[in-house]
Design a protein around this nucleic acid. Structure first.
Lengths: 122, 122
DNA sequence: TATTAAGTAGTAATCATTCCTACTTATGAA
DNA sequence: TTCATAAGTAGGAATGATTACTACTTAATA
């Protein structure tokens, strides 16, 4: 994989936020740095960065694809109400099935986040 | 939610297989029972069954949506080579932070399955 | 600095999924 | 058992996120 300014900018943009952005958000941020970047380039590179295991992707209940530059093994919590995505620590890691080669894993919890729970009480 | 023959047939079809089918597969199976069922009806009911927590959905690395009638908490292993989906015992659990209401969870492992690993050795 | 294969911008095409409309049916009340 | 009505459906059109295509550009290597 050859160096490209576009790909590294896309990578930096995803890594510099904790908001778990989607492709459109990344596109808009990258345009602030490379105004004529194309949306296709953003999609292509997000995918190749995920394939290269430099980024992670996750899907919300609404089937939106979001990206995460934090490649440490951790879980996500997606709020069904406000759609905010939270990072969560993984507690236990148990037995691996014999003969299967796990290359990466996704742990997503869905529900109502702290903020939305307290909004309901008000 | 009112009874409909279409919805119950769709539910039965998903529950009667362990293959974690996608919408198209369900559509073709349901057509064997209700020949003039429409694809829109299959999509609408798969979604409403997921919303009603009677079915589960999961996405492969290729962003295909698959369905599962087994609502017990378990993980999935998706083979990056043959795309087969396996059921697995839960390996990882997250620290559920105070105040968050978890309604359901997804645990997906990606990699190479036992069969494909041994194919490579041959 | 010349070669070339990988990468890009811009735009067109794709296709899984959703939306729309007129018709059908389950359900509960009278 | 009608009847009213709101939920559900078939069939087809529309949507929109993502991918594909093409001519141009650029990184990497000799």
């Amino acid at each position: 994989m050859r160096y490209s300014k576009q790909r590294e900018t896309i990578y930096d943009v995803v890594c510099s936020t904790k908001c778990h952005p989607d492709a459109e958000w990344v596109y808009n941020e990258v345009r602030k740095i490379i105004p004529d970047v194309s949306l296709g380039t953003v999609y292509r590179n997000l995918n190749s960065l995920v394939d290269a295991r430099r980024l992670d992707s996750l899907e919300t209940a609404l089937k939106e694809v979001h990206f995460d530059g934090d490649m440490s093994v951790h879980a996500h919590f997606v709020c069904d109400k406000c759609s905010k995505i939270y990072d969560m620590a993984i507690k236990a890691d148990a037995e691996k099935p014999e003969g299967f080669k796990v290359s990466h894993e996704k742990h997503i919890y869905y529900g109502i986040c702290k903020d939305c729970v307290s909004d309901n009480i008000k």
